[in-house]
Design a protein around this nucleic acid. Structure first.
Lengths: 300, 300
DNA sequence: TCAAGCGTTTGTCCAAGACAAAATGAGTGA
DNA sequence: TCACTCATTTTGTCTTGGACAAACGCTTGA
């Protein structure tokens, strides 16, 4: 019965692997080996879906699929746990405490621990230091298999709440530059945008947050309508790297030359030496540098 | 040059139409008619992409593709504008004022108008009455072509801010039922979840918000880990309707029987008479009914 | 007015082949 | 030892044309 089996579309949804990729792996590597329904369509057993999710997880970490799908189950023990690489150096305990609260499924305690950390450190330090380390710790825990997907979702949701609350509490930036903040379609990670919005607003820039997944044509229209000086895009590590460069080029070509284009996030770092007119922001602190740089240019 | 042309993947991203669908339309209806690059791959000119977005917009409204792609440009005038159908009956002006602010790209004024409306009406009335009507008005304006995509994004972002702020300000629900709130993968609309979370928290239920796009297996795990009484999913009108029933069935089969499964949103309404053990919540107010019903059952 | 039956429409899936971009590894020079 | 180039493999995505089932909408019958 198909009650517990997955169609190819369901597997694509749950693993993030494209249908074409699933079919070509089957052809090339002999895995996965889905059963077929009466109509000849693939039916993936749950164990194989689980294995595919693990493979995807390791791929996002940098491993290559050919090795992974061919290997049997020694990759589970050999690759999965780069176990705890000094989980957080120079951690006063805040990080591990928060991670433990996510793992303990105590939402109220998690929320107050986050709020408390933010107030103790001040917003800028919190965002420049603690949040990236928390994100990294959550990402590592997830890759290591210590975190379930839903636990990562829960963390993201609470952090999102906190950051949005912080942004709302700030006086709205009314100065320059005016920055359109968004991601391209397919990129749904929002924390990078919110962190950037916090930092920029703190510096008095005017942010126009469009949320995630704005079609390129609409990014251009928004920049025009809001008289933006800068379009800032965030790319997560999970974003297919091969698409970043052409996307950036297409957008750069569509935007008026005076409008700057900033790319940030782990997914943008692979773009170091690229086209003219594109600024790759290497880290969160880099946003502040880029901002100072922009203001310096304008002052001239 | 491909500077301004779109690959099939780019069109899928920007329009939401699957690659297979784009190819089959070309074969069957003779539209779109992309050029080819040196490698024989499709290159869609921007006008056709624009037209495809319009078609997708009308399809989400209920029109069938066969008619739309065959028609020439009389559907632009004939179908697009069901122009202003008494834009908002019994509107004290709040709605149209807010719409105008979105259109005017004045973020600060929009934010304060929303906040003010919420405080004037009280949270529950605001969510039951004003927010759905605003959403509908924005959706209509978008379908009519009065709104750009980025304007809808801007609205969503501000509303999201406001609702999250309201939730944070409420005392965290600690009672029963315990409700896991999320959407399935591919469903990224978040406002329905936030509105539900507001209403449920106001009634003292304990919400476990997982954000959007949680894989089915992880929804089940989350329900278990958080000892949830209810799993509530939100489906927007844009969600492919044919997928809702099998998704619900699969999830119902995977969840322990005592855990209730609630489906809400415009995309769930097509599911009226469905399987046992699934509650279809027809409207926002329906959440309160369902909640009262659940509590009544538990009291017995 | 509603239910049942029956074409039509429509999205998704399949197969096998092809190719280009990215990653890898070998070889070369400073 | 490092940096660079070049050839080779790996890998994802795109192609065509055929097929089918589920959903739609129309018509018929009660």
């Amino acid at each position: 019965m198909s009650e517990t089996n997955f169609s190819i579309a369901a597997v694509e949804r749950d693993t993030g692997l494209a249908k074409d990729t699933l079919r070509v792996w089957e052809r090339r590597y002999g895995f996965p080996t889905p059963a077929r329904d009466t109509n000849g369509e693939r039916l993936y057993p749950p164990e194989q879906v689980e294995r595919l999710r693990l493979i995807k997880r390791l791929m996002d970490q940098g491993f290559r699929p050919g090795k992974l799908v061919s290997a049997s189950s020694e990759e589970l023990s050999a690759l999965t746990p780069p176990p705890a690489n000094a989980p957080a150096r120079a951690d006063d305990g805040t990080l591990s405490a928060i991670i433990a609260l996510v793992k303990g499924h105590d939402i109220a305690a998690l929320r107050s621990a986050l709020t408390q950390a933010m107030h103790r450190q001040g917003l800028q330090t919190f965002i420049l230091d603690t949040v990236p380390r928390l994100n990294a710790a959550v990402g590592e825990a997830w890759m290591r298999g210590d975190f379930e997907v839903f636990e990562e979702h829960l963390y993201t949701e609470q952090m999102q709440s906190l950051l949005r609350q912080a942004i709302t509490a700030l006086p709205a930036g009314r100065g320059r530059p005016r920055v359109v903040l968004t991601t391209v379609p397919e990129e749904q990670h929002v924390l990078g945008l919110l962190m950037s919005e916090c930092l920029l607003t703190l510096e008095g820039a005017a942010c126009i947050p469009l949320g995630t997944q704005t079609p390129l044509a609409d990014i251009v229209r928004a920049a025009d309508a809001h008289a933006a000086d800068i379009v800032a895009l965030s790319f997560s590590a999970a974003f297919p790297g091969r698409q970043v460069a052409p996307l950036a080029a297409q957008l750069r070509a569509s935007l008026p030359p005076p409008v700057a284009l900033w790319l940030g996030g782990a997914g943008a770092e692979r773009l170091r030496g690229t086209a003219h007119g594109i600024t790759v922001v290497q880290s969160l602190a880099g946003i502040l540098d880029a901002l100072a740089d922009w203001r310096g240019r304008q002052a001239r």
